Computed example of a mutant assay.
Amino acid sequence: MCYADMILRTLKKEKAAIILFVCGSILMNIYYTILSNVGFKLYPLIINMFFLILYLFYKFFAYRKLYKCLEEGVTSPQYNGGKNSLFEDVIEKEKEIHKKYLSEISKLNDSIKERDLMLIEWIHNMKTSVSVISLATESMKSKEGSDIRYENELLKKNLENVLNVFRMDEFSSDYVPESINLNSIVKEVVNSEKSSFIYGKVYPKNRVNSSLNIYSDKKWLKFVIKQLIINAVKYSEANSSIMIFGEESDSNITLHIKDKGIGIKKSEIHRIFEPFFTGTNGRSSDKSSGMGLYMVKKICDKLHISVDVSSESGKGSDFSLTFRRSENC
């Protein structure tokens, strides 16, 4: 490598040091001028430049030695591309390490899959037990029986939520888009959550126009709407109502789920879709796992639905789902 190239490389690599030296020299001269009440003096700058040049000379020869060693290694007779080459040994070692790394990753993935299968099997067994409890308490007309059925239903929903977390990994194979009437799907969800409304003493008001149709996956959309309604009931005051209504424009249809509950703090709104974030309300009432809204956001992203929220602490929240109009509806 020629000296000119080597000098340019050195200056480029030591650019930060050069800037630091120059700035230091200027500051030192300013300080010296103020302190001694005399004009600008050249010799402090010359001294600094002298040390800078010494430093650059040192780095120049250090870099030159390094590049020279590298060039000699490549042009050495020992570097013939054969099996005894140092470079070939290094490459072979890297390949060996990479192979072990891939093997460990494969083992880890297999272990995770095995654990997931065991957990899914356990959840299905738990759902069987939940169904048995549900049948056994059907004839119980007392308040205790109602409480057991309500808690059993919550357990069933939580188990289903865990299963949906696993299903998210195979979302594309479980995605079936179709034309959906918004009013009908809201009615289905509201009817499935009757016990939640009764226990929470909250009243749903479905004001969705029956002419509004969207194109999406019905199963996943029901899950999203159900989660938003459950949240609205959970944080609503007794004897209040939840308003569910739709809006439409030329390009979009928006579904609103609006409650008159305790609302969300302004400082926490930007975090409500994060996993395991429960917020002040969730921590104070011990009602939240921090996964419901996270799942809502993940599913909406996959369904290309925009989910937004406006809320005021103490006055309630308005969650909205915005769908693009489709010719398939």
Score class of each variant (00 low, 15 high):
218 K>R: 14
180 I>W: 09
190 V>T: 08
137 T>N: 06
189 V>T: 07
147 D>E: 10
162 V>S: 12
185 I>N: 09
172 S>T: 13
150 Y>L: 00
182 L>I: 11
209 N>M: 12
163 L>A: 08
147 D>C: 00
153 E>V: 03
193 E>Y: 02
153 E>Q: 15
170 E>I: 10
213 N>D: 10
213 N>K: 14
138 E>Q: 09
203 Y>D: 02
215 Y>M: 04
146 S>I: 01
200 G>W: 01
149 R>L: 08
191 N>S: 13
162 V>R: 13
143 K>R: 12
211 S>D: 14
214 I>S: 00
167 R>E: 15
186 V>Y: 01
203 Y>I: 01
213 N>E: 11
149 R>K: 14
205 K>V: 09
217 D>C: 14
172 S>Q: 10
155 L>P: 03
221 L>A: 06
176 V>G: 05
208 V>E: 07
162 V>M: 15
184 S>N: 14
144 E>H: 02
150 Y>Q: 00
150 Y>S: 00
140 M>G: 00
139 S>C: 07
187 K>F: 11
214 I>T: 01
141 K>R: 10
144 E>M: 01
219 K>E: 10
192 S>L: 10
144 E>P: 00
209 N>L: 15
209 N>S: 15
200 G>T: 06
216 S>C: 02
189 V>M: 06
183 N>W: 12
195 S>N: 00
167 R>H: 15
211 S>Y: 12
140 M>E: 08
199 Y>W: 09
205 K>T: 05
177 P>E: 13
182 L>F: 11
177 P>A: 14
201 K>D: 00
220 W>G: 02
166 F>K: 07
196 S>V: 00
178 E>S: 12
189 V>A: 05
150 Y>R: 00
169 D>V: 08
195 S>K: 00
137 T>K: 04
167 R>Y: 15
138 E>Y: 05
196 S>T: 01
177 P>Q: 13
172 S>C: 04
143 K>Q: 07
166 F>C: 07
174 D>K: 15
200 G>C: 09
143 K>I: 05
218 K>P: 03
172 S>P: 03
175 Y>P: 04
168 M>Y: 11
160 E>Y: 10
192 S>V: 08
164 N>P: 06
166 F>P: 07
144 E>R: 00
165 V>L: 13
208 V>L: 09
203 Y>V: 03
